[in-house]
Write a protein that binds this DNA or RNA. Structure first.
Lengths: 224, 224
DNA sequence: CTCGGTTTGTTCTCGCGTTCACAAACTCCT
DNA sequence: AGGAGTTTGTGAACGCGAGAACAAACCGAG
């Protein structure tokens, strides 16, 4: 498979601009490939992978083409090879340290979520401002005071923070995270965070998702 | 999510085709308006509301224009009036009954999430296939057997189901939900669900969100 | 009543993302 | 070796959403 090296352009590798929409789908492909691999499937066509990932095959091929030419015409894709290439592109071949702030119901659920560890993320600390939660052990980690944030980030070179606090505390937590040098935030609090441009924020909002479903549900009822 | 143009004609109001991107932002505006209202603010301009919602004001005005003309030129929007109009459009002026299946860490967190009740959703049942979880009381509700699904859906006219099970069980749960008449599913399991076209599915995937952050994080490091 | 200042609703343009369709490239069979 | 059958990678067309810009509409002062 030295062919890949031939098609490489000016930059050594992986420095092309990948569209945001494609980036959002790469993890889906990665998961589908992992499933296929676990089923002992060594090769798959773009059509098979597209079905497994829930997209259309043309889109899949175009997405993969941004990474390079990792398939073989007339044959398809080598499952493990493609899986590695996507993982490398996303950056989950090594582990990313993650800190979770706010260890309520949701924070505990996140801490216990096995999908993180198996997908390139390692929870290095659980922090909570509430002294009542201090020293509880969740998922094998002691819950520490929020003020430990700076030390944790420094010692573990944490770049990614997860906010699972109530809405009122979220902005303060975000500010502190940014001050400590965290540059990517996953926010579960139902509030719009204000952060500098160079910091990436992704929001997961449960009630918004339900409201979107409710809108469509309402329209279904109207036509019936 | 392709929403077919079902009834594009003949409707008094609020039946216009609202773009999917706009629908996804309406709940954000709704939340921002609620916050403003709680602060005692009676009127706001598109610029103020846009800042509170984290979008640009031209986009906000365009979004609102799909609903109708609810503002006053030279003045702005009446906060409570606009809030009601958006709530009505989304369909959260009445309560939607919701059933949650899979009462592990995440399911419990969801059951306890107060944002549901306050935003037009009412959790009517918690179900789990595991007998060990049976009869536990979570958020004031007894955890019932998964086989109760059909009865619950019928008795409460449930249209929206939440799946918080492990990946392996999720497709079976979805199939059963569809068979019972549920037409909107919020899926937290890391798997692509296969459902009929008329059923809406929204996916919340924690590790995918983190992987997207990791991709950008990796690129930041590469340039620095 | 009129005029200046303000803010909405809408039109227009541009860029991104999706999809189609097909040439290029590979395998297998004869 | 050559041709038939597959499947990838990509150029081109198309549609949707974002943002800029402006006319229409409203308020208040004089």
């Amino acid at each position: 498979m030295e062919r890949a090296a031939v098609t490489a352009r000016t930059s050594p590798e992986s420095a092309r601009d990948i569209p945001e929409a494609t980036v959002a789908r790469l993890p889906v492909y990665l998961r589908a490939l992992t499933t296929l691999s676990e089923q002992g499937i060594g090769t798959c066509s773009s059509e098979e992978l597209a079905v497994a990932a829930g997209v259309n095959s043309a889109k899949l091929r175009k997405d993969l083409s941004y990474l390079g030419s990792y398939g073989t015409r007339g044959v398809g894709y080598d499952v493990d090879y493609l899986r590695y290439q996507i993982a490398r592109e996303i950056g989950v071949t090594q582990d990313w340290p993650v800190v979770i702030v706010g260890i309520g119901n949701l924070g505990q659920a996140l801490a216990n979520y096995s999908g993180f560890r198996s997908r390139g993320f390692r929870v290095v600390a659980l922090l909570d401002a509430d002294p009542a939660r201090r020293d509880e052990v969740v998922a094998g980690l002691e819950v520490g005071p929020f003020d430990d944030l700076e030390r944790i980030v420094r010692e573990h070179s944490v770049a990614i923070g997860v906010i699972a606090t109530p809405a009122l505390a979220a902005q303060d937590v975000a500010d502190r995270m940014v001050a400590c040098g965290i540059t990517s935030i996953l926010n579960f609090a139902p509030i719009v965070l204000n952060v500098p441009d160079q910091v990436d924020v992704r929001k997961v909002d449960l009630s918004i998702e339900l409201q979107i479903l409710a809108y469509h549900e309402q329209r279904k009822g109207a036509t019936a």
